[in-house]
């Protein structure tokens, strides 16, 4: 009897948990669905006192209007300029430094490494004003330079992760290359890079998503439409359109800007879900 009632409790508990998780899943999905549905509505539908779920007549032309009436493609290309320049140069710089820390004999190695890693401790808000002042003095405010330039010097988090990974590469490979007369740069290009490909790929994907969604620094520096990245453009449309003039257009722009990241996430889902890159775990 006791056994039976316990089973019943467990079973109803499981059903309750399932319902909660599914309700949670709907809550997760709802904002995205609501964004896409609102993008297809008319302005008056979007601001009706009794929200309707489906648009009466889907306004597909809202998407075309976003692409033609706003500097949308300009913003995409600005974002891609930042992505490509920062990631290409920044990854090489980070990987080279990681190779040096992981595999080469270096004076004051520990001190230098701790010094570079300590930059991760400093919040952006603490260095924001002097950086802004400096870029202002250089005439670089309202250009892409303040967004690109710091990234060209590498990324401490990426470097740290690559050091961990490269430590696993056998020293024998490096020693034998040295005997064959390879230069250090040659070892980096021919041995380290090919063997670090999975780690580099994961880091590049994360960085790509991070730059695409980056908002704080770009919003400070990029004020004119000519230089705005996608996120800054959408935020500026928000301040123009949120009051109601054409809210569905804003939602259409937000939808379009989200689609590439959702696709990347679905395509590289394993990188995001099964490998937790950095997590401090110590008993």
């Amino acid at each position: 009897m006791h056994e039976k009632s316990e089973k019943f409790v467990l079973k109803s508990f499981h059903i309750g948990a399932t319902l909660l998780v599914l309700l949670g899943a709907m809550t997760m999905l709802l904002p995205y669905i609501w964004m896409a549905l609102t993008a297809l509505k008319t302005p008056s539908e979007a601001f009706s006192m009794v929200p309707t779920f489906l648009p009466e007549a889907p306004q597909f032309h809202n998407f075309r209007r976003v692409l033609t009436e706003f500097p949308f493609w300009r913003a995409v290309s600005n974002t891609m300029i930042v992505e490509l320049s920062v990631i290409s140069v920044g990854t090489i710089v980070s990987a080279l430094a990681a190779f040096s820390f992981a595999k080469l004999r270096m004076p004051y190695k520990k001190t230098l490494l701790l010094m570079l890693l300590s930059s991760m401790m400093v919040p952006y808000a603490t260095v924001m004003l002097p950086q802004y002042r400096a870029f202002q003095a250089l005439g670089m405010v309202d250009t892409l330079w303040p967004i690109i330039l710091p990234g060209l010097f590498g990324n401490a988090a990426m470097m740290f992760f690559l050091i961990q990974y490269m430590r696993g590469i056998p020293d024998v490979l490096i020693e034998s290359a040295k005997i064959d007369g390879a230069s250090y740069l040659g070892i980096f290009v021919r041995i380290i890079i090919p063997l670090s490909k999975p780690a580099l790929a994961a880091q590049v994907i994360f960085w790509f998503v991070g730059i695409w969604n980056d908002y704080f620094a770009p919003s400070i520096y990029l004020t004119s439409p000519r230089v705005q990245t996608l996120q800054v453009l959408i935020a500026s449309l928000n301040s123009t359109y949120a009051s109601g003039t054409n809210f569905p257009l804003l939602m259409a722009a937000a939808t379009l800007s989200s689609i590439p990241m959702i696709l990347i996430f679905l395509f590289f889902q394993r990188y995001f879900l099964s490998t937790v890159i950095l997590s401090g775990v110590k008993e």
Binding site: L29, L250, I262
Partner: peptide
């Protein structure tokens, strides 16, 4: 379900905040 719950982590804070501001709207919010 794991994918779904993780989705906000790759979404832009700009898009998310604009949608939530709309959802939380006092007059016509969902």
């Amino acid at each position: 379900l794991r994918l779904l719950y993780y989705l906000p982590a790759v979404s832009s804070v700009v898009a998310i905040n604009i949608i939530f501001r709309y959802l939380f709207n006092g007059e016509f919010g969902l």
